[in-house]
Each structure stands twice: as structure tokens, then as C-alpha cells.
Design a protein around this nucleic acid. Sequence first.
DNA 1: CGGATCGATGGATGATTGTCAAACCTTGTC
DNA 2: GACAAGGTTTGACAATCATCCATCGATCCG
Lengths: 110, 110
Amino acid sequence: MTDDERLPQPAPAEIDLVTVLHALGDPVRMRLLTSYADGAEHSCDPRHLGLEHLHKSTVSHHMRVLREAGVTTTRVAGRNRFVSLRRADLDARFPGLLDALLAAARATAR
Amino acid sequence: MTDDERLPQPAPAEIDLVTVLHALGDPVRMRLLTSYADGAEHSCDPRHLGLEHLHKSTVSHHMRVLREAGVTTTRVAGRNRFVSLRRADLDARFPGLLDALLAAARATAR
DNA sequence: CGGATCGATGGATGATTGTCAAACCTTGTC
DNA sequence: GACAAGGTTTGACAATCATCCATCGATCCG
């Protein structure tokens, strides 16, 4: 099976603010963040994310940046990856930041 | 005289979230932000900012990035520039974001 | 087994970026 | 006017980055 493994990610205490902001300072990754705001797990398919124009390897790259920054976590299940927000870890380390970011993204994206 | 002019900066409504995050996704500029958190005006001298190791033109570059992102404003007075946070504009556009960022920076920088 | 699917990986490429150095410009000072 | 002071601008250079393409690995399905 090899289910329920996680791709490499920083420990909660190692999440660095500048690294997180750098990760989110890109329109594609900000788009991914807003997709993940529902708290659910998401596949990596660009077509499910409003990123049809991007190559799948490019999306894979962006998801790696988010994961290595500590923004997301990726669960491996079979040949699928399920990506979700590390909301609890982020809220614990940077209280209010994630909510402010998501609110800002929602307010300006329409 | 030519006092009290401002270097070019985006209008409040033009401040873009991703651009702001991109600007702050750099350790030097995050350091500048925390310096500006007191709300006061600051000179551009690297020695007044804990950036003695950086060339003055490098600091000038970083301050330009912050200003063009809408994070700071620069008042020209004689041969001096006075840089300060655009706190009101940022709070109006992204409520809670600046406070969360500064709190996060304070919490992790010591 | 054979083929298809999901996604990661490695290489290549063009664009962006952080840094320094040197020159420049404007303003204040002698 | 000559010179110093505070910053900006330009050029150069190395490093990083976003993107695509091709390939690969593992898993699931007939």
C-alpha cells in the first residue's frame, strides 16, 4: 500500500516567515493557496485548480515550493497526492496571518 | 526647495497583494519593514537600519521595491529621503495583514 | 503482463533578482 | 564656485526562478 506517507516538509517550529512570504509572492501559488482555503485535500491536477494553462511539472514545482515553505502538506496515497493547508501549524506559529492573507486575497480577487 | 515631494508609488487601490508579499519575501526587506513598524520616518542610511554590510545602492534598490509595492512612502526633503510605512493605506486595503506580519516577525526574530 | 494514469525528476532556457562598483545628480556648506 | 553628503541610476555578474519538455517511477486496471 505505502499509504499515508507525507512528502518532506519543515517541522512547525522551522517554518520561516520570509520563506512563507516568498512562497506566496507568486500569482500561481497564491491561486493555489486560495484553492486550499477550504481545508480539504486537493489533487495536483492543474485542471482542478484553474491552472489549465500550466504544464503539470510546473504545478508540481509550485506545490513543492509551498510544501517546503511549510504552507501545505502532501499525503501520498497510491499514485495520488493529496495536498492540504497546514492551517493549525500556521495559525500556531503566525497567529492571524493566514486569515488576513486569505481575506486579502478574497477581497482583491473580485 | 522642492520639498515634500514623494517618490512614485502606487495608488491605494492599486496595491497588489502578491506584489506586497513578493516584496516582503526577502530578509533584507523584512528587516526594513520591522524598522519602519514604529511609524516614524527613517533615513536611507544603511547604518541606521542594521544593514551595515550592504552597499548603499543595494539598500536603495530594496527601498524602491518596497515603495513600488505600496508598502512604504518616501518623502523628499532637500538631499534627504524620509521613508515610512503606509500603514493606513495597507490597513484599509488588507485589514489585519500588516499587524499579523509584524507580530509574526517579532515572534520569530528573537 | 501491458497499458494507462498521476505525479515527480532532471535538463534546458530565458527572465528576474540581489549585490557591488562607479558615475551621477541634487542639495547644503565653506 | 568648489567641495562634501545623501541617494539614485546604470552596468555587470552570479544566482535564483518559472516554465516547458522528456523521462521516469509507482500504482491501478484489464
